[in-house]
């Protein structure tokens, strides 16, 4: 199993192409936020950008917090999401220690599925799908 990693975020130019691609292709949305990966400025634009995404916990605290089984453990880290089971309670959002789960105003939740569809949209190769053994050490700027 592979995980989406962000090993070269120091190259990020803040174009949002990755998060827009995730929203558009995976969640069929136009949005900065309803996406598995979200790009935020860090301390104002002048100091660059950070990517907020699922770090592939195993076991994942969001899975433990989910009361309906909408979130289940993904082999190798991360979660499998079954939207039909989600009651929009937001417990997963509260459980995530790195704010990787986004809850929209209508209650719908969004988290990275580690599918890698965003990777090719980054113009500077900031993102990479890596095997879980590699991924543990390469979430940012290695």
């Amino acid at each position: 199993m592979k995980l989406l990693t962000t090993p070269r975020m120091d190259r990020c130019i803040g174009c949002h192409s990755c998060s827009l691609a995730c929203a558009r292709l995976i969640h069929k949305n136009l949005s900065w936020s309803t996406s598995g990966i979200r790009i935020h400025s860090s301390g104002g634009l002048s100091t660059g950008f950070v990517a907020v995404l699922c770090l592939g916990c195993d076991p994942a605290p969001c899975v433990a917090a989910c009361p309906t089984g909408a979130f289940s453990q993904r082999q190798g880290g991360g979660v499998i999401v079954r939207k039909k089971l989600c009651i929009r309670c937001g417990e997963c959002v509260k459980a995530c220690p790195v704010d990787a789960v986004y809850q929209a105003h209508d209650g719908d939740v969004f988290v990275c599925l580690h599918c890698g569809r965003c990777v090719d949209f980054c113009p500077h190769n900031c993102l990479e799908l890596r095997g879980t053994d590699d991924a543990r050490r390469s979430f940012d700027n290695d």
């Binding site: 130019i13 803040g14 174009c15 900065w32 634009l45 660059g48 113009p123």
Partner: peptide, 14 residues
């Protein structure tokens, strides 16, 4: 020092 981009533009002309 570095480049930047407008949101929605992968060119990054800033």
């Amino acid at each position: 020092l570095r480049n930047g981009a407008c949101s929605g533009c992968p060119v990054g002309c800033i």
